[in-house]
Design a protein around this nucleic acid. Structure first.
Lengths: 253, 253
DNA sequence: CTAGGCCGATAAAGCTGACTTAAGCAAGAC
DNA sequence: GTCTTGCTTAAGTCAGCTTTATCGGCCTAG
């Protein structure tokens, strides 16, 4: 496309997003998710004011947001406590991004991949019942483009199409929560590319399976759509497991 | 009920949670999710300061939190805009609670129920592989108690055990995100009871299926655990659909 | 008559310092 | 030994202020 697309216009959550609030939020969020601030340790507003050279307002607003994400908990006369990982809102896109950037990357990837394994086949099945002919056609077209990009070895284009394909399936499922899940999946797909935690070359079989899903949805065959999607997920899971076994069994716990 | 149950001690997110911040957050969040503040409409900090008789700090911190939930968006020189429902973090427990309390209740219930339908069978399958003998035994015990409560017609007790059973399956799946999902499911189960959107009496077959799931997990039979859980989900979906058709096809869109 | 840049009004963003509240802790009373 | 009292402390709340980005109208140049 000729459009430069300066901003995706969806959610601007970049670190240096031109604002003290966003910057501090990102720094503290990253520190907590990375374990640099272990659970139980305490933060003090006045310290943060000094450390980061920002005003009380900024610090307080950031702590409020972190609190709503379950990362910290403010108590009078005590300070602001870092909470255990089990208390975090692991479905918050911000939290996912921070975790993908931390050492807990592998655990985050596995969790979301397992979630995908559960959700996407169901979504494919629902989409087969609910998608309009136009939507189904678009899916078939996308699968065809994926095939072409895969054959041509265009990794970047394949990744883009792959994300879009799975997004459309979730959208066509007609479930708002599945749609929202696409956001998280996109983080993972982008993350696995960025962090080299995934084989970039698409397998021959994966290309065929995407085409199968699209075709099954178009023909309103929920069972076949689901089965094909299950196979896509199983294959993705196998590939990622293989990579994890090599690169880092460190933070697998 | 005779039990006063002053605090569940898990997460204190009650409306009048002794704090201006929590109270205003709840009021605004409820108003947005209920559609009283339609997307595109604008809030002004100074107006809110007057209306709710609180200080700027409180208003700004609340708006920051709502912003992190995707409910609003602050723009200089414009004000604070209410965002469309599609932008909301529908996985945030707060947002779910607000939506369950609004007219969009049915849509929320259906979304989460579909999500459960996808996730819980997968969780049962994973639990069959990962649960320790102790965990499996506890599940079998719970299923037995559910049977007893169901036969005795003790609705409140059955609901409590039902929530605990599904929570344990998700915990035993070993996936942190599945565990977190239990929180949302508990909201729904409590909500369906509270809002009378669900038949309270447990079916004979449901009792048997819960026992089947527990037994399959104990015997490490992932496939059978998954199949039984699928049936539980299908039955729950059918029952809820029936109720929705009667009570309110209003906000089904 | 249109395109593009200039400028002022406006509302959020951010800063400051003081006061209030309540949770924790320790000393003292029973 | 237990209970109460009161002090300490850090978050909570407030009010007023300065700064900054942006929108929308206006004006000029093509």
């Amino acid at each position: 496309m000729a459009t430069p697309s300066p901003e995706v216009a969806s959610v601007r959550l970049d670190p240096a997003e031109s604002g003290l609030h966003a910057r501090l939020l990102d720094q503290l969020g990253t520190a907590v998710c990375a374990g640099q601030l272990p659970p139980g340790s305490v933060l003090y507003i006045d310290d943060l004011v000094e450390q980061y050279a920002v005003s009380r307002s900024v610090v307080r607003e950031v702590l409020r947001v972190l609190s709503s994400m379950g990362l910290v908990e403010s108590r009078r006369r005590v300070g602001t406590l870092i909470r255990a990982a089990g208390d975090w809102n692991v479905f918050d896109p911000q939290v996912i991004r921070w975790r993908l950037a931390s050492a807990g990357r592998i655990a985050q990837l596995r969790s979301i991949t397992e979630l995908r394994t559960a959700v996407e086949p169901q979504a494919a099945s629902l989409a087969a019942h609910r998608a309009t002919p136009q939507e189904a056609s678009e899916l078939v077209g996308l699968a065809a483009k994926m095939w072409a990009a895969g054959k041509a070895g265009d990794e970047a284009e394949f990744l883009r199409l792959d994300i879009e394909f799975h997004r459309l399936v979730l959208v066509d499922s007609g479930n708002e929560m599945f749609v929202k899940l696409h956001e998280l999946v996109a983080e993972v797909l982008a993350g696995r590319y960025h962090y080299d935690l995934m084989p970039h070359y698409p397998h021959e079989q994966a290309l065929q399976l995407h085409a199968d899903v699209a075709q099954a949805i178009q023909r309103r065959d929920g069972e076949r759509a689901k089965t094909a999607m299950v196979q896509i997920m199983e294959q993705a899971m196998l590939e990622m497991s293989a990579i994890w076994a090599q690169t880092g069994p460190d933070s697998a716990g």
